[in-house]
Design a protein around this nucleic acid. Structure first.
Length: 127
RNA sequence: ACAGGCAGUAGAGGCAAUCGCGGGAAAAUUUUUUCUCGAGGAAAGUCCGGACUCCACAGAGCGGCGUGCCGGGUAAUGCCCGGUGAGAGCAAUCUCGAAGACAGUGCCAUAGAAACGGAAACCGCCUCAAAAAAAUUUUGGGGUAAGGGUGGAAAGGUGCGGUAAGAGCGCACCGGCGGUCGGGUAAUCGGCCGGCCCGGCAAACCUCACGCGGAGCAAAGUCGAAUAGGAAAGGGUUGACGCUGCUCGCUGACCUUUCGGGUAGACUGCGAAGAUUUGUGCGGUAACGUACAAACGAGAUAAAUGAUUGCCACAUACAGAAUCCGGCUUAUCGACUGCCUGUCGAU
């Protein structure tokens, strides 16, 4: 349930461009979320961190945070869609809790959150 | 003990628990399980030098680029080691060197009388002549680079002699130049002799010596779909177009086979092979070489080391492999180790 396979990751420049250009985007201060409804790409995900964030070490850390957040929230996603998560500058100094909160919030706004509302609220209260 | 110099070492802080990631092996078998390995001293900048790959290539010259005290080390270097010279420091030690300016050309702003012609007389110094005259002053001619002034630099420096005043004019020492003898592989150092001696800039052109073919792993190689498209051979119904109004014929849609080019993509290149590291012996002042022994083992391709919790410690910097090595440079926290120098104290 919490695994993240290699085959689930979006590969290739063309696929990334497709999601960027055709998909809808949702953003907060930590993460930008691109969503593309397409059965062909069902369940696929990509992670990105631009050069503005800093050096290679910082970019790696942002990608790892995004990967970890997605891994833990994967079961709460419904629908046939492809996602791309892009880190923003605020995320470089955040912890994984912040990343998870941001991701859940964005998923709800995108309308692809699967979990029961109570479950989400519980999650928020717990923090 | 304090102050300083040089050389070097290790660190995703350690341990435990749960979840998770990349490679390899085995089992099972079609996606699971187990075991095991998994970033750095700079992985960085891409500044040099190689290995490797492809392209070009008779040989030589010209041109271009780079390097530039001397010798050695190395696969090679612009790197390293040792020495020479200059400078800094009481010292340990550190810093800097671009060969040649009698091969030639060029430049030296402003200031200054004059900026390279063995030059140059602005103030000054000395002297002669004339005029006025007590001292002395004015005008003109000549001598003079000691003093002043300008400048980054004024054509050897200091001292004594010398002179009308001065001057390498003469002498001594120093500096430079030339010759010679000796030490050294050499850079260069030391002695002696000579005549007294024509600045700087080569990161201006240039001269001399040495080195260099070009592009780079997105190199290069192998396999190669769909669809588009090329060539050849064979078959060829009906309809359309054109040569011509008609017939024949040609062109040709279409089908089959073969061939080569090769796109997307996949695999190789790509990591158990190495100019590797460590130790000991031998050679060498050293860099390093050599023999033997042992150790190490990343390999992704939207690109692997993370998250949470607990305890200890609390200082965690700079920072992430991408074909691989040797260097240099830059970034950087808090530590530790060894050797050396100076001062103070004790013995």
């Amino acid at each position: 349930m919490f695994e993240l396979k290699k085959s689930e990751i979006v590969r290739g420049k063309k696929d990334f461009q497709k999601v960027y250009s055709l998909g809808k985007s949702y953003a907060d201060k930590n993460i930008v979320l691109y969503v593309l409804n397409d059965e062909k790409y069902n369940g696929k995900v990509g992670f990105a961190a631009g050069k503005k964030l800093g050096c290679a070490v910082v970019r790696n850390r942002v990608k790892r945070l995004l990967r970890e957040a997605y891994r833990l929230c994967k079961n709460k996603i419904s629908g046939d869609c492809a996602l791309i998560l892009v880190g923003r500058k605020n995320l470089t100094e955040s912890k994984s809790d912040d990343a998870i909160k941001s991701l859940l919030n964005l998923l709800r706004r995108a309308g692809i959150s699967n979990g029961e509302k109570n479950h989400d609220e519980n999650f928020y209260r717990a923090d």
